[in-house]
Amino acid sequence: MGSKKDARGELVQGTLDMLILKTLTRGRQHGYGIAQFIKQTSDDVLRVEEGSLYPALHRLELDGLIDSEWGQSPNNRRAKYYRLTALGRKQLAKEAGNWGRLARAIAQVMGTA
């Protein structure tokens, strides 16, 4: 809503959800870790703002797609870790399928020119 949007790293709402879910397939992670992972794996292209990240995490938690628990971070700090639920896994599979079809379709259209 009020969050600033970076032209390079702007993420469509549903896409951010999908990326969060995908990140969590590698195991439990805290908010900062998720943002860092997405940034690094996308070679700094995708930058997740805290203003979008945390509301998205809480919404996913409310929807039951992810779960949370408090734990110790490697540097001995109290951190909130998120984990994928069975429901989230199913949702990810669906979204990944959709995404794949969409990406292929766009690539085909762009490739014809």
Binding site: G31, Y32, Q36, N75, R77
Partner: peptide, 24 residues
Amino acid sequence: QDELRFHQEMQAEEEGVSAARFGN
């Protein structure tokens, strides 16, 4: 409060960004 503070601290530690750069 804790969750966001953790994020800020990690940011400061790992990237050397000040808390000021953190969103509202």
